[in-house]
Design a protein around this nucleic acid. Structure first.
Length: 780
DNA sequence: GCGCAGCCCATTTTT
DNA sequence: TGGGCTGCGC
């Protein structure tokens, strides 16, 4: 990240100078240095500053570069001051990277970009300034998913519902989905009350919001929904922000939900300089409320919008791009892009069918070792799975091989039990209103204050309309509690008071350490026989360490509320293992994509729940997977697999069949397909059930696999055919008319019989009708 | 109030 | 198959 001094100097000069509304002349006459190395579309994306812009950035097309340069350009040319730009991302990581890279261009003045951050962090910032408008105090706490579920559970308890049938987590999810759509309880359509608890859904939602208000708390969804309420009810506040944000930039626009969309629309109304960056083909969070629709109808929402497509890919080989493009072409709901690359060489995408999941893990392990022996660093390779339960097989294999690996995702640092406990102590010290935190740690470590004592306190609190801490003080004056419990509670409350006092003039790390020691919390784990205890103690130390980077306890806790990751220790020398979702935005030279079987990927459960739309989303997920690969992409499927301890057989994923044959090598295992039926019967745990051979073979994936094993593996690489890459998508028109004679590198001469966009069916003289993509053909 | 045995269930999860 | 929760027995 080296910044070019000359540019930084210019930036600072420009930024500090008065009257910076006009662009300095030198930028008009000659292209500024920061545009160097950008391709034509990236440049356009940078220079089209005014009016709505949709930057459709395909995978690996240098999106971040275009986007950060655009920000720098706005600042350099004096179009906006750092504080007049709103730049939103979804993840803290993306925000951090953007800030870093803009900083490299413009220097220290990036610190003035106060409105660069995640939707939630900016929402929180705005909400703190106007909290009283929605009945909160500016010191409100932010609840995470776990708190949310616990609060929802309490609401269900109070409503006296069957808690087995209606869980807190379910209610929290229902409420979340309403919030994702920007709906406050009064706006939820009455018919949707039935989404939960036999018509009580909306009531419960309202009760939940009421509880939040009492706790002076907001959940993640509220950070945006409260913003919307404020904007709608207080036009003066909205107008203020509308004027302030002269330019807006939104990353990963395809992942926005309705609430975020409304928020953006409201804020963009005045200047209308909104630039949304995204890729409809990489929208994979529909199940969390993301609406691909938002990006698909951008041009309607913002009339006069300019759409700029970044299509030159700098990441992958032609075959990988062709495979990904061919696959995604099967989707209907998309804007359509044509990715291409200047790269010419590259191996085909490899597809391997194996007997079972164990073998799959073994072969991938072997491949990884082979690559390693060729000198490839382990961290250049990644195994990407659909769901985390698929990871275990690989972890086991890597462990036996002694291959170091690293799992991304999983329980996040700030969501772990011990971290949350420790934070609950700190939150309670900061704010005595935090009943959820009180409940969490009042008996951790054990203080003899269990369910019974807690119920007593709850009753007292409710009767007097006070917090649990206040109720505790009352209880100490009465004999509602057993003498032993009372004694213990008194000591606990005493400690809390003392820590609160100490907290006033101690740095956060010292308070954290003190509290963890004095409360006996650390000791609880030190004396624990649990196998995880050591890890937990380490985590607690890390937490104290993390706190030392903050000046105040408030600053630290606010940071923690919105950030789930501790800054990652970048260790090389490990294979990556993660879900496809977690891999979005990353890239690796070698990518393994196991488990491409019907039912697993696409996931049967998704399909059952949401049907065709889900299938498209699964396909986008597959697209994301393939496009992570720079040099080598290896897909595999297993005929049999143990899932939840039960053997199941599966047919290859339909996605395999959607990959263009030209760029794919199928590595079949001798005997697997030919003898499949008999083998299957012999090994099957199905009690001798005879397989219907026809049904077994009659699916495209197996047909292809079998065809491939029959065909000699000459593997004549189709470098010329795929050289200029590649595929094609949505309603484009083919350059070949129906009936035209064409030539294909692999299949020879033929005649076009039908066309669907750029996907043609060609009747080849020698091999009969096949579906091929326009770009693989030459006129004959 | 605590601990353990048996039971149930099982995606993806930016904040 | 294994992790998390509940309910029972102490």
């Amino acid at each position: 990240m080296s910044s070019k001094p000359s540019i930084s100097e210019r930036a600072l000069a420009g930024l500090t100078g008065p009257g910076m509304a006009e662009a300095p002349a030198r930028f008009v006459d000659e292209a500024p240095a920061y545009l160097e190395g950008l391709n034509a579309e990236q440049r356009e994306a940078v220079l089209t500053t005014d009016g709505p812009v949709l930057m459709l950035a395909g995978a690996g097309t240098g999106k971040t570069r275009a986007l950060t340069t655009r920000l720098a350009h706005l600042l350099f040319t004096g179009r906006a001051r750092p504080s007049q730009i709103l730049a939103v991302t979804f993840t803290n990581k993306a925000a951090r990277e953007m800030k870093l890279r803009v900083g490299a261009l413009i220097g220290d003045s990036v610190e003035g970009m106060r409105w660069l951050g995640t939707f939630h962090s900016i929402g929180a910032l705005i909400l703190r300034r106007h909290a009283e408008l929605v009945g909160l105090k500016s010191t409100f706490t932010i609840l995470d998913a776990d708190d949310q579920a616990r609060l929802a559970k309490q609401v269900i308890e109070v409503a006296d519902l069957d808690e087995k049938r209606w869980t807190g987590r379910n209610l929290a999810m229902t409420i979340d989905s309403w919030k994702n759509r920007g709906l406050t309880p009064d706006k939820v359509p009455a018919s949707e009350a039935w989404n939960f608890a036999d018509g009580k859904g909306i009531e419960l939602y309202a009760a939940y919001q009421q509880r939040l208000k009492m706790l002076n708390a907001a959940d993640f969804g509220d950070l945006l929904v409260h913003n919307l309420t404020i904007f709608q009810q207080h036009p003066d506040v909205l107008a203020d922000y509308q004027s302030r944000f002269r330019y807006m930039l939104v990353d990963e626009y395809q992942d926005t939900n309705v609430a975020q969309y409304l928020w953006l629309r409201l804020l963009a109304q005045k200047h209308k300089n909104i630039c949304c960056v995204g890729d409809d083909d990489q929208s994979i969070y529909g199940w969390r409320g993301a609406e691909v629709e938002n990006i698909l109808r951008f041009e309607k929402d913002f009339p006069g919008a300019k759409v700029i497509r970044l299509e030159q890919n700098y990441r992958s080989t032609p075959s990988i791009l062709a495979a990904a493009s061919g696959l995604i072409h099967a989707n209907k709901a998309r804007l359509g892009k044509t990715l291409w690359t200047e790269q010419r060489e590259g191996e085909n995408v490899k597809i391997r069918g194996v007997w079972d999941g164990e073998e799959e893990a073994r072969l991938i392990g072997d491949d990884i070792e082979a690559e390693q022996h060729k000198g490839r660093p382990l961290s250049d390779m990644a195994v990407l799975v659909r769901a985390s339960y698929q990871m275990r097989a690989f972890e086991e294999r890597f462990n036996t091989l002694g291959v170091p690996y690293r799992v991304v995702g999983g329980p996040r640092f700030y969501e772990r039990e011990e971290t949350r406990d420790a934070l609950a102590y700190l939150k309670l010290i900061r704010s005595a209103e935090d009943d959820l935190s009180f409940e969490r740690i009042v008996n951790k470590p054990r203080r003899g204050l269990g369910d019974k004592a807690l119920t007593t306190l709850h009753t007292l609190a409710r009767a007097n309309g006070v917090t649990l801490i206040a109720a505790s003080r009352l209880a100490l004056e009465t004999d509602d509690l057993h003498a032993s419990a009372r004694k213990s509670l008194a000591a606990f409350i005493n400690s809390l008071d003392r820590w609160s006092r100490d907290a006033r003039d101690m740095p956060p790390a010292d308070i954290a350490e003190l509290v963890l020691e004095e409360s006996g919390y650390i000791d609880m784990w030190k004396t624990s026989k649990s196998a995880q205890a050591d890890g937990k103690i380490d985590n607690l130390k890390e937490l104290v360490q993390a706190a030392s980077e903050f000046e105040t306890l408030e600053a630290y806790l606010d940071h923690v509320a919105l950030v789930s990751e501790l800054s990652e220790s970048a260790e090389g020398g490990q294979v990556w293992l993660m879900t496809l979702h977690a891999a979005k935005g990353l890239e690796f030279p070698v990518v393994f994509l196991p488990g491409w079987e019907e039912g697993i990927f696409p996931s049967q459960r998704s399909l059952d729940e949401k049907g065709a739309a889900a299938l498209e989303e699964e396909r986008r997920l597959a697209y994301v997977g393939i496009t992570r690969a720079e040099e080598s992409c290896r897909i595999s499927f297993a005929a049999n697999r143990q899932i939840y301890g039960r053997w199941q057989s599966a047919i290859p994923s339909r996605f395999i069949d959607e990959l263009p044959e030209e760029v794919v090598d199928v590595i079949s295992q001798p005997g697997l397909y030919g003898a499949a039926a008999t083998n299957f019967a012999a090994h099957s745990s199905f009690d001798g059930a005879k397989l219907k051979e026809d049904a077994y073979y009659d699916n495209p994936g197996w047909r292809r696999a079998r065809a491939a094993s029959a065909r000699p593996q000459t593997a004549a690489p189709l470098i010329d055919a795929k050289a200029q890459t590649v595929s094609v998508s949505a309603p484009g028109k083919s350059k070949f008319a129906i009936g035209a004679r064409v030539f294909h590198q692999k299949f020879g001469y033929g005649k076009v019989v039908s066309a669907e966009g750029q996907k043609l069916t060609v009747n080849f003289d020698h091999s009969g009708p096949k579906k091929v993509i326009d770009t693989f053909l030459d006129a004959s």
